[in-house]
Design a protein around this nucleic acid. Structure first.
Lengths: 350, 350
DNA sequence: CTGAAAGCGCTTACAG
DNA sequence: CTGAAAGCGCTTACAG
């Protein structure tokens, strides 16, 4: 009735002359009270504009919020605009939604403005991307809460992965069946020091435990060696952020090489990198695949809904998200999980 | 110390022989206690593994959760994979993150499994897309909570919009400067009855209050009329979901027309539709723009990072998100807001 | 089937 | 600068 404040369960109970327990049960456990009483309560609630028990109070009382937090290593802005992260989130959301849970988005690099984390509200956590180990232990993830990692393996937690090394081997092996004159690799955040450009001996590469792209490199190198090409002689460029804006200048520089020095095969560690190369090569009038063959990694829609289609490794990020979400909800036993990938051959590298 | 349960503020206070108020202040209001006591409290907290006040309890006590919910008309799966919705979310996230708030994702079509909404946990709501009015009033949005709408205008709430009609007029006007032989329109969810295909007189079109695409159609028609083309004679196809999968068959059917019946100008109501047309036309060997000119609407990155670039209207969805978020946080007075658009001329319709 | 009572873990005037 | 106490709005054994 009061238009200024929300009515509470207690007030509603008083109005009706019943106990708060009955009102609570009317909303939460229909079997705990007579049908008639329940109808009376619900009708009065409607009349007074009571929308049901307050979620804040309930979550305190029960200890459960029906909220699962996704902790993203990258900024929310990047993650939401990245096709792979979006797919993952969509797989997570699909499962949560079907089970009455909702999704809270948290940035790993928590802003300083953040008051003592609202993250302790979540029932469980899904962490995505490579997290600095320090963050994992920090205030972001309360102890005693379930956590599932995706694409990295923090000590003591279950992780969802793909087979990066064999998948990379497979696509490189495919590409190398037509021997290239000048193969090259474009890697993603592989060096200890940030590097947008050519990787030299001065750079230290991150170990496989710290980045999935190192495993991809190992797969590429294995295929190269098997095809009689010395991996040490294959030039590599690195990119720090998987966006067109960051990729473009590095790739322009590569394509600027004279015709007899320009790579004729680019093994890229992501579709974003490969698609940027494709676009920029097309703008220069290079013929794909005659002048330049390009492979990606991820299998995002954008690479398939175009001509020429991208040759790539499809990873089912949506499924990774579903698996992680099922573990967090306890629908599946929590254990390390490996999701299969699939080689997809498009016209960019037939 | 106990490894089985999280320690509470009260227990920590007892350990230290201080009041709970001092512990609370140590975390929340450093100026309310001496530096020495604060340090002692924080040190002991660290030692005992206390990560700071529990968010559930704090939100109940203070009435604020630092959580803002985004209520999406479409499914979470669709929204997360749609470039326009993702941009909006990213603008929202950017502002929330900078102000210590987090983002809760809610699907408008709340799943039936949902226990009495966890939505009442949010401090405020941003609703995106066209919501059935019934949903707006329903349990999803508790009364007395701030709400900002984006791309639709529920009675009594501030809304963030773009100038759909003039923007559509502008792009059609540009396209019509080279007179087409057979212009056509592909609209997005414009009919009362779901329709993936040709729109006929049997279909009822939604009114402009109920869909932004009706305003886009009005803009197209105004331009057509001004260029001496009777809008009634321009064929229109409609698409229900803005995805490649749903667009493709409709567009295939259009492109299947004999050469002298196939449209030579497609005015599309979204970039997704236009890009699907572009891809499918290219696959058939049609020359763009010589055989077919195509325009989009939205200005998503995918349309610009390709060759030919898409001629389109750029709407700054990120900025729409930022504005809505600022209103919800009270950083900006809540009032209707109109975000400017920009005509972008690419090679798909020079 | 129904109700009285305790307590989830905090924050915040308020008094000292 | 510090502490005792009330209460945010619920749910849940438990007793009747």
């Amino acid at each position: 009735m009061s238009s200024s404040r929300r009515i509470t369960l207690k007030e509603l109970a008083r109005h009706l002359g019943v106990s708060t327990a009955s009102v609570s049960n009317a909303f939460n456990r229909p079997d705990q009270l007579s049908h008639a009483l329940r109808e009376r309560i619900l009708a009065e609630a409607r009349r007074l504009g009571y929308r049901g028990p307050d979620a804040k109070a309930r979550s305190l009382r029960t200890g459960r919020s029906q909220i699962v937090a996704v902790l993203l290593a990258e900024s929310l802005t990047y993650s939401l605009n990245d096709a792979v992260a979006s797919e993952l989130l969509s797989g997570i959301a699909e499962v949560l939604d079907a089970h009455g849970h909702t999704l809270l988005l948290l940035s790993g690099r928590q802003n300083a403005a953040q008051v003592p984390g609202s993250s302790s509200i979540a029932d469980g956590f899904i962490a995505y991307g490579l997290m600095p180990p320090s963050l994992m232990v920090s205030a972001d993830v309360p102890a005693q809460r379930p956590l599932v990692a995706v694409d990295f393996s923090p000590e003591g937690y279950p992780a969802v992965h793909i087979d990066n090394e064999p998948a990379s081997y497979a696509i490189a092996d495919h590409a190398l069946k037509s021997p290239p004159l000048r193969p090259a690799i474009i890697s993603l955040r592989l060096t200890e020091q940030p590097c947008n450009g050519r990787v030299t001996e001065a750079h230290t590469q991150l170990p496989p435990e710290q980045t999935i792209t190192r495993s991809r490199l190992i797969g590429f190198h294995r295929a190269l060696a098997e095809h009689g090409i010395d991996p040490a002689g294959v030039p590599m460029w690195n990119i720090e952020e998987n966006t067109f804006e960051v990729c473009a200048p590095v790739i322009e520089a590569i394509l600027d090489s004279p015709d007899d020095e320009r790579p004729d095969l680019l093994l890229c560690m992501s579709d974003r990198i490969a698609l940027t190369a494709l676009t920029l090569a097309e703008r220069r009038g290079l013929r794909i695949p005659e002048d330049l063959r390009i492979t990606g990694f991820d299998g995002i829609a954008e690479g398939q809904y175009r001509a020429p289609r991208l040759t790539t490794v499809r990873q089912d990020s949506t499924e990774k998200g579903r698996i992680a979400a099922r573990m967090i909800l306890g629908l599946t036993p929590s254990a390390d999980s490996l999701v299969a990938t699939e080689l997809m051959i498009g016209e960019s590298c037939p």
